[in-house]
Structure formats: C-alpha cells, structure tokens
Amino acid sequence: MSILDWFAKKNDSVVVERSKLDIPGNLWVKCITCNGVLYSKDLEENNKVCPHCGHHFRLTSKERMKLILDKDSFEEFFSTMQPKNALGFKDTISYDERIKKAKKSSNLNEAVVTGKGLLDDYEVVVGIMDFSYMGGSMGSVVGEKLTRAIEYATEHNLPVIIFSSSGGARMQEGVLSLMQMAKTSAAIYRLKQKNLLYISVLCDPTTGGTTASFAMLGDINMTEPNALIGFAGPRVIEQTIRQKLPKKFQRSEYLLEHGMIDYITERKDMKPVLSRILGYTSHKKISKGNNNGN
C-alpha cells in the first residue's frame, strides 16, 4: 500500500452520505416520547423508530417508498403537476410564496407521490403523502394525482395502496380542496366496483378531509402504533365539549378499539403484512422473467 492509497481511503470515510432528518440538530435526536437521546444514524437504520420506546417518527415519501417497494421498481406518475393559486389566496404570505417555500424545503412538487411499483413482486399502484409539504394538505393536485392513480389501477386491474399523512383539505384552495374529497372517493367507488383491492395506511397524522374521504375507505385500513387519526383536531373538540379528552384519544390503538382500523403494525413489519394481504386477496406475483416486457 502506497502512502497515496492511505490518504485516499481516509477521504472516503469522511464523505458519509446521510439523508437529512426532518428534525433539527442532525447528529443527535431527542425522542419526543421517551426523551431518550438517539444517534440519528442509528435511528435511520432502525427505520426512524426509537430503539428504546418504539416511537415511530414521521417518514418522508421517499423514505416510505424505500421501505415498502422493491428496489428500483418504482415508476412515478404525473410528477410534473404543480399547484395553482386559483383563489389568489394570501394569508401572512401569498399562496404562491407558500408553494415556492414548500417546494424548496421538501424538495417535492406536491404533497403526494403517485406511481406504480413492485411490493414483494406484487404489482401495485401507490400513493404516498408527504407531511413535509404543507402539512400533507390536500388541494387540487393531491386530489387529481390520487384520482388518476386510482383510475389507472381500475383500468389495469391493479391493487391500490395509499399512505396518508395529512392535516386535511388545503385551506388555500378553498372549496376546490373540499371537492377533492368527493373526487377521490368516487374514484375509490369505481375501483371497488371492479372488485379491486384498496389498502389505506393511515400514517401519523391523518386528519380532517383526508380522513373523511379516501383514507377511511380502505378494504383494509391499517396504521402504525400511536398515529394520530381523526376528523376534528383535539383542540377543537376540547373547546366544543369543554372537557379533557381521554388518554390515547384519536390514536391508532383507540381507533382500533372503536372499530375503525383493521390492523396496527410496527414499521418493520409493514411490508411483510402488506405482502401477506396481497397474497390472501389472490394477487399473483409477477414472474421475474416477465418483468421487463411489461
């Protein structure tokens, strides 16, 4: 080994590629549930689940996809669609500014990624919402992308899996956002008419108009532990009924107890469970040889 080799090697180890966490202070992360201090690399290697208490941190759409789909199998649909300030909406800053900021900070064109891919060699259409883009709110683009994806699945006889993570309808698009609830739900109706499978995975948090439309309509409704899922926000409810809410209210386990959720799974088991459901519902894995021509 020459001296130069020795230097080169050292340089290699300095450049460690590490995707960013959406939590400030990149090296160490404090778990919001157990207050444990976690080394962020460990946390990422554990699918962003706290190794001490099992708290599930939020995932970006990219991370979710990596976790669920087979490597390099994803083909994105309608990626260029962008939101429009149809109402000329302005709060503290204009909606156009907000769109720009969201795009920059999340590196996404909108709050949902749609497309098709393979899950354990089962061909599936997926929609993955991303809370880091304007709180995962549903405006025209989210509604349209999901509807098109569902229609694509309906046409091609494919199962649909949607991962929700959304504060609800996007205020900045007014009633146009509300109408996306109707649009997506109608598309789900047509998918089900063809006896095609729809699995809804309600991730932390899923609230408002998203819950009150496609997210609650799965043949199977699934979630991860302790995810916040509800219609009205807890603060609004407390103000309305003027009493403290029960512990764990609007959390996964609470919803399961009340009959709204089929199954709660830890993140590491999400893909295997989805794969099993696809198996139970008579889906066929594609044979590897066929993979390319299709």
Binding site: I188, T211, A212, M216, G230, F231, I241, L245
Partner: peptide, 26 residues
C-alpha cells in the same frame, strides 16, 4: 359542519362522511 365531539369521533364521523362520498357516487 359535522359535530366535533368525543362520541362523534369515537363512532367514526370521518368514516361515515367518507362512506357517503363513496356510495353516493354510485
């Protein structure tokens, strides 16, 4: 709006609305 109450949430007001949106389409 739909009632933002404890029982309303427990009994799945979001699911009830979603179900209407879906089935009214047909």
């Amino acid at each position: 709006g739909a009632y933002p109450g404890l029982g309303s949430e427990e009994r799945g007001v979001a699911e009830a609305i979603a179900h209407n949106l879906q089935d009214m389409a047909g």
